[in-house]
Design a protein around this nucleic acid. Structure first.
Length: 783
DNA sequence: GAGCACTGC
């Protein structure tokens, strides 16, 4: 049986098992917050009008291009042909003001509604500014004076890779130096350094930074990685944080680091300030403005009242978007059956509203909570559509959710074939931010979405449908007004709407802080709770992350990062997986190649095995899948899948299709595998691996045991023992878990299990499950 | 017997 590893907090000390960690110095002080006045030129609190020109979206001229591949013009003098389009953007007339404000001030908060052009235009307005020139400076470092260059580039961050790359392609054309060639075909290649250009981008597996790049689009995570190497961001004169309203964990961390640079003494930048432009599509930016206004006490003292003239005061501007009015209706009474109400609304629109008008198609976009609701609604709509008389337009239903294949998703974006048919897209939240469905003029909003929330107390995530925020409701409605005047039907009352939270809970307050805390520790932040964040962290969540990192060996008893922890941050995987990689390199286990295959596969996205709808398709795929499934569990099944995939020489796409394997995720896994292999070679953890394809040889039972024991080094707390009543009881916390139906071990009884994920949906589920022996848990816990 | 959405030296 496992040792008792109950954690308890007593005063400034926390104990796990036989270990004691002092919390002194990093859990005792309260985070600073809300200091001093905020000087803004306009009050940001006048919310968007509830009815018409609201909404957001990844904006600007590149908007429509984000879902389809943008093909840049090959004409070198292409800039002129874009000029009239650029001049028509609402932002164009504000360019002098934007420049003027940033000449005097370091921080600008810019609210630009959908279609204002902020993502594409702001960097182009700024890159020729005097303060944006690269400068030679003298910097004191380690007692010596060094000469370095500071500034010269503008970074502009995006939450998603597609947005960063498509925007870069678009802006490179507008700037007259188009990025050429296929993107992403050769990750990390050096072709870019031979070409010249003003615009580049950097996302994982795909970097294009031509010589002379002044404007660089990157994902938030990418800039965060650059920050770890260069804490002063010396390459950059400015950082433009786009889509901040989405409040990803990465953007919250990024803003903390940016604030430290702004508020610091700038010695690391040779005294040259870093300009920061925060761009949001929603107007409730008060807390963000306050966050950046609240600089160091010294700066506050030096400019107590006339803040508007001080470079540290935060400027605010709001730009109108290009959005058609959207008429919003609510239900008079709360609806008992959302699905029934939604179907009736769809049929009512379909029979009463035009199929087409002078602005174009009039399709319907309905927001539902998940795949199950979408598929059942699809069935019912199709049944109804079959009964429509010939003089009424037909209905074609398109589901849209993240786990669908790219091609299937793409169908929802295509104009419909056959003129007498209306498109009805049934979507999850994916259509709220990540993709744009063209042709939509009617939106139906169920008022809910599924949200993942981490409960630190029991290390359990829940994934349940919750009411959306006002901000989300406004975004959804705005989807109806992209191409012409639209209508949004909310399946809830106006008073329910008014009772909604203003904004969603930021991700950083909903998730496991393991990665965030390790990042902070790696940059030398001792007191995690003192790190500046727009929303302060929950002490309990921080404690849990610290304990977990300590358990993994990433933090020492004094709370500082260990040698092992420094190695762990270098891997682009979460801390437990990094721990597993390091264990696998240990000669005692010697299974690094196998573990890399598995981790690549798991971290490539949701499951690589697609859900299969029909019974016959399922039977067909199962014939092929049978050779992949292993009795050891999901981990060894993933390994076998990767090995057989790489042994496949003929047609890998066909190979995936036959097994209903998500090709997109598989390609991502291939990239991650390559990246992890290169990192491990670089770190001296292994020799250069043999080239692909290698013939398939099934893993030996001994090696499989070693692989599982390595995973236990990262996941010993995620184990459960079979109880006499045939339920599984977690060894840490004594909760009952059920093996998820997607696991190859579903319905089986094993002495003990290890699971990589623990999620509460219908009930408490263990996912990515492997069969282990109870004695291995003790073995893994004995350091 | 079940699957919100993203991202990374």
């Amino acid at each position: 049986m496992s040792k008792k590893r109950k954690s308890e907090a007593s005063g400034d000390v926390i104990r796990i098992g036989n270990k004691t960690i002092s919390l002194e110095g990093y859990l005792t002080k309260k985070p600073k917050k809300d200091v001093g006045p905020t000087e803004t030129t306009t009050k940001p609190d006048q919310a968007l009008e509830p009815s018409s020109k609201e909404s957001k979206s990844p904006d600007s001229t590149a908007q429509e291009k984000k879902t389809t591949k943008f093909v840049p013009s090959r004409k070198p003098s292409g800039a002129a042909e874009y000029l009239s389009t650029r001049q028509a953007l609402p932002l164009w007339s504000h360019q002098d003001e934007i420049r003027r404000r940033l000449q005097k001030h370091d921080v600008l908060v810019l609210v630009g509604e959908t279609g204002s052009g902020k993502s594409t235009q702001v960097p182009q307005f700024l890159y020729q500014e005097k303060w944006c020139q690269r400068q030679k400076v003298k910097i004191e470092a380690n007692g010596r004076t060094e000469e370095t260059a500071v500034g010269g580039m503008i970074a502009i961050t995006q939450p998603r890779r597609v947005a960063a790359t498509t925007l870069a392609h678009r802006v490179s054309c507008e700037a007259g130096t188009p990025l050429k060639g296929d993107k992403g075909s050769k990750p990390g290649n050096a072709q870019s350094s031979y070409s010249r250009g003003l615009v580049g981008y950097s996302v994982r597996f795909d970097h294009r930074v031509p010589k002379g790049t002044k404007i660089k689009y990157l994902t938030e995570g990418m800039l965060l990685q650059e920050l770890l190497r260069d804490p002063h961001l010396r390459q950059y004169s400015a950082v433009l944080v786009d889509e901040i309203h989405e409040r990803s964990t990465d953007v919250d961390l990024l803003c903390g680091f940016l604030k430290q640079i702004i508020a610091g003494d700038k010695a690391g930048r040779g005294g040259i300030p870093l300009k920061v432009v925060i761009m949001s599509a929603t107007a409730n930016v008060e807390s963000i403005t306050r966050f950046f206004s609240d600089v160091t006490p010294e700066a506050m003292e030096s400019a107590p009242t006339e803040g508007a003239e001080n470079s540290s005061s935060v400027q605010f501007m709001q730009i109108e978007g290009r959005q058609f009015p959207v008429e919003i209706t609510h239900t008079p009474k709360p609806v008992a059956d959302i699905q029934d109400s939604m179907l009736k609304k769809i049929f009512k629109i379909h029979t009463e509203e035009p199929l087409q008008d002078k602005h174009g198609r009039c399709d319907i976009l309905a927001f539902l909570t998940g795949q199950e609701e979408i598929e059942s609604a699809q069935r019912l709509i199709e049944e109804y559509a079959a009964t429509l008389p010939a003089n009424v337009p037909k209905i074609k239903v398109f589901p849209l959710f993240g786990q669908m294949s790219i091609e299937a998703q793409h169908e929802a974006f295509q104009p419909i074939k056959g003129g007498f048919t209306r498109k009805v897209v049934l979507s999850t939240n994916i259509a709220e931010t990540s993709v744009t469905v063209p042709g939509v003029r009617y939106v139906i909003d169920c008022g809910k979405s599924k949200v993942k929330q981490f409960r630190p107390k029991i290390s359990l995530s829940s994934l349940l449908a919750r009411p959306i925020s006002k901000s989300s409701a406004i975004q959804r409605a705005g989807r109806a007004g992209r191409e012409g005047p639209g209508k949004c039907h909310r399946l809830y009352t106006e008073s329910s709407y008014l009772g909604l939270e203003e904004a969603d809970l930021p991700e950083i307050l909903r998730s496991d802080l393991l990665g965030a805390v390790l990042t902070m520790k790696a940059t030398g932040i001792d007191n995690v709770l003192e790190f500046p964040l727009m929303d302060p962290l929950e002490t309990e969540a921080v404690e849990k992350a610290l304990l977990h990192l300590h358990f993994l060996g990433a933090l020492g008893d004094d709370g500082t990062i260990t040698e092992l922890g420094r190695k762990m941050v270098m891997f682009p995987v979460t801390a437990p997986y990094a721990r597993v990689l390091l264990a696998a390199a240990d000669p005692k286990f010697d299974c690094l190649l196998e573990v890399i295959d598995i981790i690549s596969c798991i971290t490539a996205g949701e499951d690589i095995f697609l859900q299969i709808e029909s019974e016959e398709a399922k039977e067909e795929a199962e014939v092929y899948r049978k050779e992949l499934y292993r009795r050891e569990g999901d981990i060894i099944t993933y390994l076998t899948t990767m090995q057989l995939y790489f042994a496949e020489n003929a047609d890998r796409v066909q190979w995936c299709k036959a097994r209903k394997i998500n090709i997109r995720n598989m390609k991502q896994a291939v990239n991650i595998r390559k990246q992890l292999r290169a990192l491990c070679v670089k770190q001296g953890m292994m020799e250069q691996p043999p080239p692909d394809p290698q013939p398939f040889t099934p893993i030996s039972p001994d090696k499989a045991t070693n692989v599982l024991k390595c995973f236990l080094k990262g996941f010993a707390l995620k184990t459960a023992i079979l109880a006499p009543d045939s339920s599984y009881v977690t060894s840490h916390g004594k909760h009952v878990v059920a093996i998820h139906p997607a696991s190859v071990l579903h319905g089986q009884k094993k002495e003990a299990i290890m699971f990589l994920e623990h999620v509460y949906t219908q009930k408490s589920y263990a996912k990515k499950v492997s069969a282990i022996q109870a004695t291995w848990i003790v073995e893994a816990l004995g350091f």
